[in-house]
Design a protein around this nucleic acid. Structure first.
Lengths: 192, 192, 192, 192
DNA sequence: AATGAATGAGTGTTCATTCAT
DNA sequence: TATGAATGAACACTCATTCAT
């Protein structure tokens, strides 16, 4: 792995284990097994590390969403929703501590316009998948569904495989409700 | 206002405007219009400020939830859900930047057992309101609904009054879906 | 006990238990059960506390030495030496931690001329007791004997009654040697 | 000289001239002509500086004592005592202000077990030199003689060469007395 | 490229002292 | 007289960044 990536992975590891609080360039360099000088040859500043990590995370999410939505283009809304939820949860469940720190870092950081654009692009991709099925305000819906998924995933602690599939089911219920899709698996056991 | 509260409000203000990144004791003292020595007469450390802010935020949320749930005790699940959602959103919409920083700070901080307990208590209060209406796993449901609400509120940017009521409606849809309550106001205009 | 003395005893206690390192006016006031304001009504500064403690310690030593030397005025050198040693050791063995801190504090402090004079007076008192018995350079001898006694007492750790009398005997041997008094209780069992 | 030693010498200089009272890391760095950051690259804390100075002082004393005692192994007790006294005084007369501060610092500091051991080793070395000549309780004797020497040296103010040799002679008298060696140079001119 | 010693502005915290009540 | 809240200079220590090798 090239130095660039070694450093970036070191940064990710520190964020994951120590959070933003323990994130400093010396720690990152040490973790990456690289000198502090080398770190600065690839990244002009501490912030640049965060920006790059955010950029990658966003790009990966866009790809996942794009994938799901092109694969399911022809399907009905429920199937599309299922796919997006699955992709979204897969995303947030992978290195959740890292994700959390990056999410928080975004709020303070000055990401470049290019990285800002990625955020909008996620929304656009999801909105495009929802729009053809009569969802009103598809951009708002996209943002809401992403937020809802991220919120639930983030609050659900450390995961096993079974946990993830249960989480998925719960998120699906909320998403169906949001989108007005009637659910065949209601949570409350209502007498009919 | 007593010095204790002045300092705490200074801390809240800094978190709100500068985030955890700009949160340092000198800045807090300056913002509060108080000397650094005075700050340390009331708070033994920088962390203690965060802990107290978190404690207050949690206590306030518990009260709101408790209020809503006792006021609506006799009502049906939908009405209770509406009340909880309204209270939850009211909570997250108030000083959202502050809330975000505190949420993140929690992950690194060593809150005392007393403050930890508050987190569980929120879940318990909500779960108690849901349980009598046939909601399975009421604690998980409580956690999920809180997370979903917080996630959506957090992602919805700065708010006007109208925005809040729209947000509330969108959250309600997701919550109804999660709880298996059929919605009379579907988002998608589906032909029936 | 008057406030003045209460504070002073608080200061002594802190020095004894925490050393100069932990000696601060707030700690002293707390230990004395007095407000910091009251402390400053009796002592103009932190240093003033130390100076007064030193003054008292010196005065007490002078008195002990004076006592011994007037009581033994008519005796021979050995008896006088015994008395001075006994008094000196009694002095250093009482609150030795306190004594150690005060001794060190002296080196940095600007004691007033009056307190400086006390130091010389101790030497003078002892020298006066030694001079009539043919001791050369009685002032140097006085200083040496005091230093030797203090050194040995200080290095001999925490004391029981038996320890003190053993210490006394050992110091006496050194003092006899210094003064050229032949010892009837030699340490080494030399075959002659 | 490497930075490590430069800093250490700066620390020694400050202790010597300002005492523990004026001993702060910024002053040390300034004195050493080094940035505060550099100081902390070599010493993890202010205390570490003191510990290292103490360690070095003790090691040097052990060496001196070891030297003297191996050189004089075959000699009689008086010659050995002379050697140890000379070495001891040479030690305490060199930078006495520094020595005084380090001695006091010891009482508050948490020296590591390794550095604690050095203190015992000094006693052991001296005791080993004394034991073969019929000195009872050689460890106590070693401690006493060290204390007596240090006490007298410390109280004897600033030194010229002549002063040192006079001091040596006076200490020797006390030591002879302590060890039960008859002195050929008595201080008191007793008629025989 | 890579290194890592060096820098120093910045931050958390302490504590002697003051002064209004 | 007594109180103790308030002050802020001073100090311990960190960490982003540079630069000579």
């Amino acid at each position: 792995m090239a130095t660039f990536d070694v450093v970036l992975e070191g940064a990710a590891h520190i964020l994951e284990t120590k959070g933003l609080h323990g994130f400093n360039t010396n720690a990152v360099a040490r973790q990456a097994g690289v000198s502090i000088g080398s770190l600065y040859q690839y990244f002009p500043s501490k912030e640049a590390l965060l920006v790059e990590l955010i950029r990658r995370k966003r790009t990966a999410l866009i790809e996942k969403m794009q994938d799901a939505s092109s694969r399911l283009e022809a399907s009905d809304l429920r199937t599309i929703a299922d796919g997006l939820v699955r992709a979204g949860i897969a995303h947030w469940v992978e290195r959740p501590e890292l994700a959390r720190s990056l999410e928080y870092a975004e709020t303070t950081l000055d990401l470049g316009p290019e990285t800002e654009a990625l955020k909008r692009q996620i929304v656009v991709v999801v909105a495009k998948a929802l729009a053809p099925h009569g969802v009103e305000n598809p951009e708002t819906a996209a943002r809401d569904l992403a937020a809802l998924t991220r919120g639930m995933a983030d609050s659900s602690g450390p995961f096993g495989k079974a946990d993830v599939s249960q989480l998925e089911q719960r998120v699906r219920r909320a998403v169906y409700g949001y989108l007005g899709i009637s659910d065949s698996n209601p949570l409350t056991s209502v007498r009919r």
